[in-house]
Amino acid sequence: MTPATRLGQNQYGKAETRVVRVTRDGTTHHVRDLNVSVALSGDMEAVHRSGDNAAVLTTDTTKNTVFALAREHGIASPEDFGLLLARHFVAGQPTIHRARIRIEEYAWERIPTPGEAAHSFVRAGGGTRTAQITFDGRRAEILSGLTGVTVLNTTDSEFHGYLKDRYTTLPETTDRVLATDVTAVWRHAHDGTGAAGAAPDWDAAHAAARAYLLDAFATTYSYSLQQTLFAMGSRVIEELPGVEEIRLSLPNKHHFLVDLEPFGLANEGPDGAVYFAADRPYGLIEATVLRDGAEQRVPVDLTAPWPGGPA
């Protein structure tokens, strides 16, 4: 009898394994602090239908593998480490056909100390670095990114000329505060095969992309957050030839002028103004910027929980 149901897309693995790799170079130490989520897919029909675990590599094993490979090979960058893990799982088990590794990196800044010791750190601000590596046994898809980078322009932003209906109350403005928390994910042409050239210096490429995003935000005279988003994405594509597409998610962190007239005070003048920073609700502006001729592959929803989504 033909089964009435069939198994669709599926995955399993260990989410959010925290691994901290300390590298000691004499008295100078280096820290890489990662949150690693592993998702594996493959020949999993039997385990779902009958509970036959013969094809299953345990999630505890995937956790242990994260720690072991961090010790054996070190962590050169989130992208390098993710690719190492993905290849290990697919090459090591015949029932595993695809591995997706998602990584968040928490940065630490060195605290200056007297003498030659260099082993004290403070957690760095300015957002979280992200990476996602998917490998199917032939090619890898390598996504780099960042999230939680909060930026603000106190001027050089306008918003007017928009559609209005009977529910519109927002006044037009020719000078406003523009603030957002940047989430961005960009896809590299490099696919692990060498067909698109050698792998980039992942740390340097990430630092450059972040710098281009911030510079474009700061130097774009904005008539809408959409315009600013496109300028930010375009700057990365134009300046980094190894990047094929970038997806940005920018919540509009609204700053409203406070009404001080009840207190006999004028709010807004040549010496400045006072604003109310509203945390919700907020406008959410999202878009992908692609190199001409490139295919869109970056996930559309960047605000979903990072370990979720299909493998």
Rank of each mutant, 00 (worst) to 15 (best):
P3E: 12
Q9L: 11
N10Y: 02
G13Q: 07
E16N: 15
R21G: 03
D25L: 09
T27G: 04
T27M: 08
R32K: 07
L34A: 09
S37V: 10
S37R: 12
A39E: 08
M44E: 05
A54F: 07
A54H: 14
V56P: 09
V56N: 09
L57W: 12
T65S: 12
A70M: 11
H73V: 09
A76Y: 03
L85A: 09
L85M: 06
A86V: 07
H88N: 10
H88K: 07
G92A: 11
T95H: 12
R98M: 03
I101V: 15
R102H: 04
E105I: 01
W108D: 01
P112C: 05
T113G: 07
G115F: 05
E116F: 05
V122F: 03
R123L: 12
G125D: 15
T134S: 10
D136H: 08
D136T: 04
R139E: 11
L143F: 14
S144I: 09
L146W: 06
T147F: 02
G148F: 11
G148K: 11
N153R: 15
N153P: 00
F159L: 15
L163Q: 04
L163A: 06
D165Y: 14
T169Y: 06
V177G: 00
L178S: 09
D181S: 15
W186F: 08
D191R: 15
T193R: 14
T193F: 03
A196R: 05
G197D: 10
P200R: 03
D201C: 07
D203W: 01
A204R: 15
A207P: 02
A211F: 03
D215C: 10
A218E: 14
T219D: 12
Y221P: 04
Q227R: 11
T228W: 01
G233E: 06
V236S: 11
E239C: 11
E239Q: 15
L240R: 06
I246R: 08
S249I: 00
S249A: 14
H254Q: 06
V258N: 00
D259G: 00
E261W: 00
P262K: 02
G264A: 07
G269Q: 02
P270A: 03
G272P: 01
A277Q: 12
T288C: 12
V289F: 05
V289R: 11
R291C: 08
R291T: 06
R297E: 12
V300I: 07
T303F: 00
G308I: 00
G308C: 03
A311E: 11
